[in-house]
Simulated scan of single mutants.
Amino acid sequence: MAGKNDRDRTKVIQDRLQVLLTQMLKDDDNKYCVDCDSKGPRWASWNLGMFLCIRCAGIHRNLGVHISKVKSVNLDSWTPVQVASMQLMGNSRARAVYEANLPDGFIRPQNDQALEQFIRAKYEKKKYIAQEYVPEAPPDFPDGWYQLIEAEKQKKDR
């Protein structure tokens, strides 16, 4: 019986984390890929805390997991710490950090080769990073986590 309870608990946790990720994707800056600006990103680099389109997610995977850890927003399983990492950064802050020193009038590359060069310069070489940036560890649980649990409890109590 413990097996079924564990599966149920895992599903409840995943459902709650999906709610939080879906809410984040509604944020204006998260509606576009952080690297190429294409609409409706469904992928994320959870350790960098940013939302990506499928094309840029593929490039991020090629960077290696020591730089970018990529997963699908809704096809993969998430942990609370991974979602908290996304909340800590998000696309607006990620751009402020990783694109702090982009040249004035910079136009985002659109062809695959130029896009890969841009992404490698940005995250591998840290060419445009804000000098004062110090990464912080995400909390154990995402913002809104406890409110979701309370709402769930109240539904059950009715």
Rank of each mutant, 00 (worst) to 15 (best):
M1Y: 07
G3C: 04
G3F: 11
G3K: 07
G3R: 10
G3Y: 08
K4Q: 12
K4T: 11
D8T: 13
R9M: 11
R9T: 07
R9C: 09
K11R: 11
K11W: 10
D15W: 01
Q18E: 10
Q18P: 04
Q18G: 12
Q18R: 09
L21T: 02
T22K: 09
K26Y: 11
K26E: 15
D27P: 03
D29V: 01
N30A: 04
K31W: 08
D35A: 02
D37G: 14
G40I: 13
G40M: 09
A44R: 03
S45G: 11
W46D: 00
W46G: 00
G49K: 01
M50D: 06
M50P: 02
M50R: 05
F51G: 02
L52A: 09
L52I: 13
C53Q: 05
I54V: 15
R55W: 04
R55G: 10
C56R: 00
G58P: 07
I59D: 01
G64I: 09
G64Q: 06
I67Y: 03
K69V: 09
K69L: 09
K69S: 12
K71H: 13
N74G: 13
D76S: 14
W78A: 03
T79H: 04
T79L: 13
V81A: 11
Q82G: 09
Q82H: 04
A84C: 07
S85L: 11
S85Y: 02
G90W: 08
G90F: 09
N91M: 06
S92G: 00
A96L: 12
E99T: 01
A100F: 15
A100L: 10
N101I: 00
L102W: 04
L102R: 01
L102A: 04
P103T: 00
G105N: 10
F106A: 01
I107A: 13
Q110K: 12
N111L: 05
L115D: 02
Q117R: 10
Q117S: 10
F118Q: 03
F118K: 02
A121F: 00
K122P: 02
K122V: 01
K125S: 15
K125Y: 12
K126P: 01
K127M: 14
Y128Q: 08
I129S: 02
Q131L: 14
Y133V: 01
P135M: 01
P135V: 00
E136D: 11
E136T: 10
P138Y: 06
P139M: 00
D140L: 13
D140E: 14
F141N: 10
P142L: 08
D143C: 05
G144W: 03
G144M: 03
Y146N: 15
Y146S: 15
Q147W: 08
E150P: 05
A151Q: 10
K153S: 12
Q154W: 02
K155R: 12
K155H: 05
K155M: 07
D157I: 09
D157N: 08
